[in-house]
Structure formats: C-alpha cells, structure tokens
C-alpha cells in the first residue's frame, strides 16, 4: 500500500506556482530524500502532505485519506521543522511528558536517552533555545514519536557538524529498529545520501527525478577531453552540465544510457569517462544555467 500518493498536485501563491502538476507515490517503510534548491517547493509539498495546507488543484492522499483535517493522518504523522511551536510556558521536560498522550507509539526511553546524550537542559523553555539546539530537540520529538510517517523538513538547520552526523546515525538506527516511512528534505544531498533509499528531486515546483539513490549514482556520466571531440560526440544529447577546462578541454555531463555506443566511441576517441557524484548531479539537474557559475565569468571576460 502506498503511504503517499499525489496526482497533478498544484499549489499557487498568487501568481507563483510553488508546486506544479506533481505526481508521485511513496511506498511503505522507505526513507525518501526530498532534494531541491531553495524555492523548489519542498516545504510547500510537505505541508500539503501533512494536511497543514490545501492544494490549489490535484489530489493528495496519505494513508488513503485526504490529509487536510484528517485526524488519522495527524495521529500517524509528525512534521518536524525549525518552526515547530510549543507553549512558551512549558519547559522541555514538560513538553516531553505531554507527548505520549498524543502518540501511541511514543518511546520515552529513547526520548530520555537522546535528551541526555545531547545534554539538553530539562528546565529550559523551547523559545529560549538556540537554533541548533531547537533543531536537536525537535528531532528528538520526531524520532521518539515513532509515527508511521515521519517528515523532517530541513531538520539539521543550525546543527553543528558533529550533531548532524549523530542525527543521521540516530535516524538510521531508529529506522532499523522500527522501520517506517520517512521523508527528509534538504537543499543538498550531502551527508544524508547514504541513509536514503529513494530520492525525489524537485526543481521549480516540478518533479525532476524520483528513483533509488543507488540508481541516481549511475544515472549520468561525465566526459572529459578535447573540446571539439566532446561537442561532436554529444551533439543532439541533453547535456546536464558543461564547463571548459583551460582553453582546449571541456567536461560534459550526460545520461549514461544516452545513446548506444556513445560511451564506447568516447573511450575510443581518448575521452575520459568519469562517474558523477550524486550530489553534483542533483545540483546540475536543478540549475537553470547549464554552464554553471563559470559561464558568467567567461562571458564577462569576452567583452
């Protein structure tokens, strides 16, 4: 059974389309990375899935129900982000003791262990916490609630490198203990890559890719060599990214299954064939300008 299903999902803010004709499904017990640059529509999509906002058109179901105003979805879903609100009158310890009433799978042992590990102060108020500590506390709530659908929207905002690493490890270990569906949004793949199963790549509110991370790594290859040879070989191909290396060489990223024999031909022509890191590919696929930042400077120089 699909946990989430979206069909032709669109959300407008005035004239801007934050999410545009999005269709996809997410299966049970999959950790999905929702990746895209700022403004790609990640948060908007997640808030629709959580039932916080309504789509302008299209259909969304979570656990086979429309999430907007669904208690079933709310009881089985937690949405963790840096804007999570808690009563300013309650201390962190009081918030933690209030949570089990809401979530039947709540694991107080885990919550307390994590709380102590990250040396949080039980008497502190949530709104007095620093950005990174807030993220850490919210993450603990998110993990300990053990909801069948756990949504993390940019969960590592403001966390130190060490805490971030611990977070990914905690998330994975908790998932291994209690497999469940998780969505994890980030503008970069970075450290999250290895713990993800699938990746959903958004650009300007549209779906760019939705596939297993392991496939993403083999989705594209880079050709490096003489400029003319490369432009000849890649003629008619969709080039995801291209840059010049010095005056005579260039580097071009294309689909691995682009054209039969293209790679063999390239090898024969003395062109190097290199893998493309998943994170780089995500950036290439979601940037409008194929030449990247170098393009700006190269063009500027020619005047």
């Amino acid at each position: 059974m699909d946990v989430i299903s979206c069909q032709g999902l669109t959300k407008n803010f005035g004239r801007i389309k934050a999410v545009s004709d999005l269709s996809f499904t997410i299966g049970q017990n999959v950790i999905t990375g929702l990746i895209g640059p700022n403004g790609a529509g990640k948060t908007t999509l997640l808030k629709i899935i959580a039932g916080f906002t309504r789509p302008s058109s299209g259909k969304v179901t979570v656990f086979s129900e429309n999430p907007f105003n669904s208690l079933k979805v709310s009881a089985n879903m937690i949405f963790v982000d840096e804007h999570m609100k808690f009563p300013s009158s309650l201390s962190l310890a009081q918030i933690m003791s209030a949570a089990p009433a809401f979530y039947k799978n709540w694991d107080m042992g885990l919550a307390k262990e994590l709380f102590a590990y990250f040396s949080l102060n039980p008497g502190q108020r949530h709104h007095h916490l620093s950005k990174g500590t807030k993220s850490t506390f919210n993450m603990i709530i998110g993990l300990a609630s053990r909801c069948p659908l756990t949504i993390f929207d940019e969960p590592t905002a403001g966390m130190d490198a060490g805490v971030r690493k611990d977070f990914y490890r905690a998330l994975l270990r908790d998932y291994l203990q209690k497999p469940r569906s998780m969505i994890f949004s980030s503008h970069l793949l970075n450290e999250a890559e290895d713990i993800l199963e699938d990746i959903l790549l958004l650009q300007a509110g549209q779906k760019r890719l939705h596939l297993p991370v392991t496939d993403l790594k083999e989705f594209a290859v880079a050709l490096r060599g003489k400029k003319e040879v490369i432009s000849e070989l890649t003629a008619g191909q969709e080039i995801y990214h291209q840059k010049n290396i010095g005056k005579e060489h260039s580097y071009a990223v294309i689909r691995r299954d682009a054209a039969d024999g293209l790679l063999k031909k390239s090898a024969a022509a003395g062109i190097e064939i290199l893998p493309v890191a998943a994170e780089d590919l995500c950036v290439y696929l979601t940037t409008r300008n194929r030449g990247g930042i170098d393009h700006v400077f190269d063009r500027n120089q020619s005047f």
Binding site: L71, K72, S74, A98, F102, Y103, P148
Partner: peptide
C-alpha cells in the same frame, strides 16, 4: 508499521489537558 486509530473525543481530551497545563498563566 501499523497505523494507530484516534477518535475525535480522544484528540480533544488530550489537547484540552495540554492546553489547561500550558495556559495556567492565564
């Protein structure tokens, strides 16, 4: 992971108690 069922009554009761606790200041 199996889904949990929540009734409206249960949700309201939990929220009410949570609010009573957090709004003592009022």
């Amino acid at each position: 992971m199996s889904l949990t069922e929540t009734s409206l009554f249960e949700a309201v009761r939990n929220q009410y108690l949570y609010k009573l606790k957090s709004r003592l200041g009022l």
